[in-house]
Design a protein around this nucleic acid. Structure first.
Length: 517
RNA sequence: GCGGGAGUAGCUCAGUUGGUAGAGCAUCAGCCUUCCAAGCUGAGGGUCGCGGAUUCGAGUUCCGUCUCCCGCUCCA
């Protein structure tokens, strides 16, 4: 199947079976915003639980946090999000460097000023004591031309910035023939505003002074709480803080279904370590995270590690775990060595000492941070992509037909167990109800009696239910039922008494977590 | 943001030179059969993405707009 078709089919399947709906569909939808439906919400919840338990349950030194989405605006000054994204930016197509457009113009103005100074110095030498600077700068043709140019440029710059006129800025750069300071190239892109943070106002008064942002990443919530958690939890390095939550980025182009959304959910763990040990822990977490993915049983060829050559301002090493989505290998999770950048920045901007007293070393320092950050929605898409199968099922008459089956990891499936009376008479529904009432305490169950048994199996296949329990006439005689396996479609007859124990082995998250320790 | 394609029932799609909207599957009720989607009877469900224009009359023609998909661009 062509990858493009596969992607379309997955999207259609996700909608048809209640995994993902376009947001506000009755009003025509909202670009790049999606809702998780009855099955999607549960699948997402199960992925979260797997991550949460793997972090918080399995690691005594990793503790949870749930920080608010609104944060003091200073946070974003400190993190670098405000300065980097509120300014008009321009890229040089040849050098691939990005600059602040207004700074390029400022640099140009400074250069013109330098030329004037040079003329003055020259004239001073020439005329000695007779030199009248005031007269010189108003009469010398070259200097007057420079001055005019500076004034002209400065006025245009101020006006462009005031009007938020990005085109005028670009025009100004062209007019002044500004070249890339590195490559000398004048091959520029358009000037663009990289304002990726959503803002809103706190309180009912509309006034710029109470402007707040929706967090563009959850990580800062962890950093600003580092001291609180470390002190109240009496945490010793190394330790980690784990958090799952929504983040918001006003992407210029949000596309590819739930891969890039403007509202998305992150699962992040920031691991605080002694300076100098970050490389060791970076390697450690890289391995641990790969293991987490592999434990799900998804084909290992669907994953690959990608090392960043270009590093973000805060990092000194970075790996992506990429997944083979229908549209190619793309980032699923990032493992970054963030150094002490974030905590140091918050220390500086808040004026509060954010340090750790190391009694072994007998010194105070700002801890280093190793981050693992995974997109929950991306993981959801990855799980769905890996699970989607179209299979030919042979029929008795020698022909075959197609079935669509989601081979989800049993632990993550939105419905873990379907309980189906073979027919809806002869007391089978009653017996089935008795059984499901017991099982639903431990498993996510669904009861179905409508339509033929084969049809019900297919429906359960389509939403990825790993096991179907069928109650037939024999059940009434000897208290046994059949368990049908989603992937092999084979059935096994077992006693009702053993059901809970058998299923527990198959779907309890405990057994998945065991693979990680 | 630019270019291309699409939008009619929950899904897949018909709908003729413009004349009051259809099928199959799905859903619901009832009957029948019962271990891998296919029996019978009946019912519900659509302001044809939205808005405007032309027309006696628009799913159909024209303009605008929104949304989705693909490619380019972007992605600290």
């Amino acid at each position: 199947m062509a990858q493009e078709d596969l992607f379309k089919k997955i999207i259609a399947h996700a909608k048809e079976y209640g995994f993902i709906f376009p947001s506000t569909e009755i009003y025509d939808g909202l670009s790049a915003v999606y809702d998780y439906g009855q099955n999607g919400a549960q699948l997402k919840e199960n992925i979260k639980k797997y991550w949460w338990d793997a972090m918080v349950k399995l690691n005594e030194n990793i503790v949870p946090l749930d920080a608010a989405i609104f944060m003091h605006p200073k946070t974003w000054e400190a993190s670098g999000h405000l300065s980097a994204f509120n300014d008009p930016m321009i890229d040089n197509k040849d050098s691939q460097k990005r600059y602040r457009a207004d700074e390029l113009v400022e640099d140009y103005i400074e250069k013109q000023q330098a030329k004037i100074d040079k003329e003055i110095t020259k004239a001073k030498k020439k005329f000695g004591d007779d030199f009248d600077e005031e007269q010189f700068v108003t009469t010398n043709k070259r200097v007057v031309a420079y001055k005019e140019k500076i004034e002209n440029t400065r006025n245009k710059l101020i006006k462009a910035l005031e009007d938020d006129d990005l085109e005028a800025l670009k025009q100004l750069i062209d007019e002044c023939e500004i070249a890339d300071p590195v490559s000398g190239s004048k091959n520029w892109t358009e000037v663009r505003q990289f304002n990726l943070m959503f803002d809103t106002r706190l309180g009912s008064v509309s006034d710029d002074s109470n402007k707040v942002y929706l967090r563009p990443e959850t990580a800062q919530g962890i950093f600003v709480n580092y001291l609180n958690v470390q002190k109240t939890g009496r945490m010793k390095l190394p330790f980690g803080i784990a958090q799952i939550g929504k983040a918001f980025r006003n992407e210029i182009v949000a596309r590819q279904f739930i891969f890039r959304m403007r509202e998305f959910e992150q699962m992040e763990m920031q691991y605080f370590v002694q300076p100098g040990e970050e490389q060791k822990w970076f390697e450690h977490w890289k391995n641990v995270r790969v293991k987490w993915h592999n434990a799900l049983g998804i084909d290992e060829n669907m994953f690959r590690l990608h090392e960043h050559d270009k590093l973000a301002h805060y990092a000194n090493a970075a790996y992506d775990i990429e997944f083979k989505f229908p549209f190619g290998f793309k980032e699923l999770e990032g493992i970054h060595s963030r150094t002490d950048f974030d905590l140091s920045q918050h220390q500086e901007y808040s004026g509060k000492k954010i340090q750790y007293f190391d009694s072994e070393r007998n010194e105070s320092y700002v801890p280093y941070v190793v981050e693992t950050s995974i997109g929950l929605d991306r993981m959801f898409l990855a799980v769905l992509t890996a699970a989607y199968h179209e299979e030919e099922v042979p029929k008795e008459n020698g022909k075959s037909e197609q079935r669509v089956v989601l081979k989800l990891p049993p632990t993550l499936a939105p419905i873990q167990l379907a309980v189906l009376p073979l027919v809806k008479k002869d007391g089978l529904p009653k017996k089935a109800r008795e059984i499901i009432d017991e099982l639903k305490l431990d498993f996510i169950c669904q009861y179905e009696e409508k339509d033929s048994i084969g049809k019900r199996y297919r429906r359960q296949d389509a939403i990825g239910t790993p096991y179907c329990i069928t109650i037939d006439h024999q059940t009434l005689e000897d208290d046994t039922v059949t368990i049908r396996d989603r992937d092999t479609m084979e059935q096994e007859r077992v006693s009702v008494n053993e059901l809970s124990a058998i299923l527990d082995k198959k779907v309890n998250m405990k057994h998945l977590l065991k693979k990680l320790v």
